[in-house]
Design a binder for these strands. Structure first.
Lengths: 244, 244
DNA sequence: TCGGGCAATTGATCTAGGTCAAATCGTTTT
DNA sequence: AAAACGATTTGACCTAGATCAATTGCCCGA
């Protein structure tokens, strides 16, 4: 835990939470920021801890997850450069509802809750910025609930990959942002199942080799999100005789 | 859509979003409130609509849900008396991420977004109240993601029922707050599956008859949330005999 | 009281994913 | 380079829950 470098400050000041704030406000907020370097697996806070700060990821990946009463892990979100988290809880001084830990080497900026609260008195815009960013988190979770309760694993994987593709159609090559075990968790699947889904996707021109993915037809991938069904093809005899 | 009665105002002023605000602030906020009476199925807004207001439920039940690309419905939340929703989106002027419609006859208070924003300029505390309440919504969704991605249907039903029981142990009689189809949706199950889960629960002393539920041992119900396994019909013999 | 209509249960399958276990493969350590 | 490790894949299985279909029960209007 050290003082932030100018680079850190520059990175932090450009993130979404702060859009809408003027430079002076941002600077004031960041005045009390500190930087934390994390190794994979190291955690920032655990679910149930009193919320004492909120965070901004500078580099690397940070995983937010919960441990269920039965001991399983449910991944809520995996964040990277430019994303912030725990703004709202820090603000209201509750308890973190989840655990945050580094999925890779990571560098995060930490802003103490008490400081944010002090700042708000003089600059109400800060509160508005926090609401905006919390609203986005809400939206993301809403989408996650939708995915989990009404989409198949294949659809979730397709949506995830499609989200990584820069273009809407044509072909592209992307690389998986973090390891497959974590991707599986992020999508509510077991690693084995993720692996099998990748295998299935090969038949629609999605080729996963280690962490490199070649999508030969992005539009087709996207269409899976809504429809799911993959028609058998390629391998000689699809004994299923798939209909039109 | 009419002006709120004194009763409405009284009900609205006691809700969670407003705790932390002083009476004058609450009154100012409510100055522009209107009341809407809904019949079952009628909707307040649809996902994608521009967010123009936020809402407080006075009576009845309101369902928040999304329609997936594939056309299925994913229930996000079912709210009742004293609960508010859409604060954050209204505040930042985005689009509603979900549809809200009445599950029963319902009466809700609507507060226009522009008015909230005006109020905030003079009373920053309002922004803080909004963050607090949004933070709770976040927390709830986090729990939902956890449930969906790491709990069995039986565990979710047990947790739901346990949440309705006023006492932590002993026995109690409760009544289901809304129809079973909606409960099923709320728990990410099909009605048929919910029905079967109820049947299973009968073997641990949970008796569901129409919308009346008799729980003979609340503690046992709660224990299911973490463990799931139901041992065959030993009704009153609460011994933890290890199954083979 | 009768019958339509819908919520709810129940039975009979089907299947996506989970579980368990073994085989690969790429890295890292010694 | 050999050994060791972890991450990924694959195969064989099994279970929770979905699906489809048939009843049953209940409320409501004529």
């Amino acid at each position: 835990m050290t003082a932030p470098t100018p680079d850190d400050l520059r990175a932090a000041s450009q993130i979404v939470v702060f859009s809408g704030l003027n430079p002076r406000e941002v600077q004031t907020l960041l005045a009390q920021a500190t930087v934390i370097d994390l190794e994979p697996g190291q955690s920032l806070f655990r679910q149930g801890d009193a919320a004492a700060a909120f965070f901004i990821v500078i580099t690397g990946w940070v995983k937010l997850y919960r441990i269920t009463p039965a001991g399983d892990e449910a991944v809520l979100h995996v964040l990277t450069k430019g994303e912030s988290f725990a703004e709202a809880v820090a603000f209201v001084g509750g308890r973190y509802p989840a655990t945050a830990s580094a999925a890779t080497d990571a560098r995060v900026v930490m802003i103490p809750a008490h400081h944010v609260i002090n700042c708000v008195r003089e600059m109400p815009d800060i509160a508005i910025a926090m609401i905006a960013s919390t609203s986005q988190h809400l939206h993301r979770l809403v989408q996650r609930v939708e995915q989990l309760s009404a989409q198949s694993g294949l659809q979730r994987v397709a949506e995830f990959l499609a989200g990584l593709c820069p273009n809407m159609d044509g072909s592209c090559t992307i690389s998986l942002p973090y390891d497959k075990t974590l991707i599986a968790g992020r999508l509510g699947l077991k690693p084995e199942s993720l692996s099998r889904v990748f295998a299935k996707l090969r038949s629609v021109g999605v080729d996963v080799r280690a962490s490199d993915v070649v999508v030969s037809e992005v539009a087709q991938l996207r269409s899976l999100v809504a429809s799911d069904r993959i028609r058998a093809r390629g391998s000689s005899n699809g004994r299923h005789g798939v209909p039109c």
